[in-house]
Design a binder for these strands. Sequence first.
DNA 1: TATGAATGAGCATTCATTCAT
DNA 2: GATGAATGAATGCTCATTCAT
Lengths: 207, 207, 207, 207
Amino acid sequence: MSIPPSAPAGKQRRAQETRAKLIEAGIALFSEQGYHQTSSKKIARRAGVAVGSFYNHFTDKKELLLTIHKEHVARIHAMVAESLAAADFGASGVHGRKLIGAIIHQTLRLHDLSPDLHRQISALVYSDPDFAEMGRSEEAHAVEQIMALLEAHRDRLRVDDLRSACQVVVQAIEAVVHGIKIFGQPEGADAQLDALGDMIHRFLFRD
Amino acid sequence: MSIPPSAPAGKQRRAQETRAKLIEAGIALFSEQGYHQTSSKKIARRAGVAVGSFYNHFTDKKELLLTIHKEHVARIHAMVAESLAAADFGASGVHGRKLIGAIIHQTLRLHDLSPDLHRQISALVYSDPDFAEMGRSEEAHAVEQIMALLEAHRDRLRVDDLRSACQVVVQAIEAVVHGIKIFGQPEGADAQLDALGDMIHRFLFRD
Amino acid sequence: MSIPPSAPAGKQRRAQETRAKLIEAGIALFSEQGYHQTSSKKIARRAGVAVGSFYNHFTDKKELLLTIHKEHVARIHAMVAESLAAADFGASGVHGRKLIGAIIHQTLRLHDLSPDLHRQISALVYSDPDFAEMGRSEEAHAVEQIMALLEAHRDRLRVDDLRSACQVVVQAIEAVVHGIKIFGQPEGADAQLDALGDMIHRFLFRD
Amino acid sequence: MSIPPSAPAGKQRRAQETRAKLIEAGIALFSEQGYHQTSSKKIARRAGVAVGSFYNHFTDKKELLLTIHKEHVARIHAMVAESLAAADFGASGVHGRKLIGAIIHQTLRLHDLSPDLHRQISALVYSDPDFAEMGRSEEAHAVEQIMALLEAHRDRLRVDDLRSACQVVVQAIEAVVHGIKIFGQPEGADAQLDALGDMIHRFLFRD
DNA sequence: TATGAATGAGCATTCATTCAT
DNA sequence: GATGAATGAATGCTCATTCAT
């Protein structure tokens, strides 16, 4: 009779499992075959679940992908927060060029998580309003974070409009990392990353 | 003897007209509704021709969009060539910051041509291998052009690896311009463009 | 606990009904209009179900016809087995000519089941590899059966290579029966069947 | 002004050439891809001719195939007539078994001409009334010919109803040859042909 | 919640045929 | 006769979604 709230009953646990299987299947199929080539039927089949169950958990495949992406972003934010805490980039002694390099490196690492899925989502950012909105808010988040980071080095910065500067920096990093990780040109990657770091450093720091 | 080569005979002219109508309809629909929401039937209807005629001229809608884009790119290259010839950016007297500003401005203008179509193609660059390849080659072209432009100012440049520098610069410009023209944030656009120009200028030029 | 395995639950029963309706419609249309003139849409309409339902049950119309034919062949094999058991053709006292006559008669009866469908399948045996394969295996089956039948009369046979003899016999019977049942020349049918029986009898039996 | 009737003028000759090219293309495509997979457009393309030209010469692809087949049959009849004249099978001294063997051999040879085309036509004999009619008349022709051949050996024959006997014989030969040439089982072919010859010989000849 | 059969609009594509040049 | 662009009905098939069990 008494169901402990912290340990969900069998029915609830089963539902959670179904949901998890659908998410996993969605990640696999969206990555392998692309968003438009993936149908709810395929997802259900891959998850080993009935089509109806798919619609019990998600209104359509777009919602599934948004869900997947949100969880992905949450995990990334956690990773970033952890990295920042560990590295203590705020310490005023850190050299500017090193800080920039660390930021770039961080971005690179984030793209290692699931580059194929990322590629599909990037496509939707261009073609679907909901994903476009998501992309904007993620970018804004990144801008806030970098601004906070640079705040500690205020006196060594040579830019007046820090927000605009950070927007441009974030977009430049994102673009170069995409070029490397999504369009996959490993040749010249290191040289490009060096150039990127130099560019941003000279832009932001007085010296 | 009786067929002037410059004025194509009736059958050929009619074919060209149909082709033109299909291209126009394709541009309109791809821009308005997006690539995946546009079907060959819709295109034919909008062009005022039969479905069969669509397939007489193009193997499928992808080929139509590639054709459209290729013509678009050709027009852009022509425009750029013309601008370069007119402005004489090679003159060694031109100030570096001004040159960068001009390049950015040029890129901005190109995106005014048909931003909605551009947005759809950008999506496909992420999700379709053929468009990805096209994107790569266009970027390479832009890099070549900027390298040629900077060659005239060699002694005032502070970068060693000019190619990597130009790749990063091209990607940064493209990213910021996309943010403004495609995701449409006019607020702060000018500030961002200034920041972008400053960043590139400080990166490339000794002073 | 509560679902009797012998009486399928509602969903399953409904599916079986739909399947049955599709098969029936397929038989009717393939017979009336021929294989190539029959489309999945027509079949679905005739069966009173949606096109999608057709594809829930069969991958395409070829699979439907193969299914129909397999069930048909299974029924025929059952009939033949029954006839053989009833008639006791193995009894050594049976006269050779009578045995041959019985085999021919049996083949004739099989062709009464659905001659129009049989005609369509015969066409496909010539033009489609899958049906060709099926035709081969059915012929092989018939050869085995007749060989088994003749084994009991070994000492009265005048052929050495029984397998080759049976192959030729099976093909001859099939050909003549087709001439009568499929190309429908009732005039002279009896005379031809007599001739066929005599031919085979004189070929196989010493007397 | 005066056009020699035996040497057709340029226009007529060109028409004949077009027709010939279409026939050749038809033979190639019907053989390679099958009747239903071949379209008038494909035929015209293969012939290096406009679609319209196809319809100038034939009402549809069926008429083309009928034409092809008729010419084919005419050539075969000529071959057979020639063979008969050369071999003098009528000579009363010829042994019956040898005669039968020669007839079978002749049939085999005819099937070497274009087995793939023959296969396609055989399919149509089952599925199309016009081809069925053609098949019937060819068979009747073969029956007449064999009857004429056997007439010379009347006194050595043991059958009363010669027509029915010949019908059965023709069908048996055709069936076994199809098994070998069209369904291609070279293993056992010789044994089957021997059996076939023995069967017919024992059937028709007193000794 | 879970199931999976049913739905029918929609899609990409082909085809035989016409007809103005 | 020759041409080949135009036609639009038809084909095979997929899809997101519903709903009775």
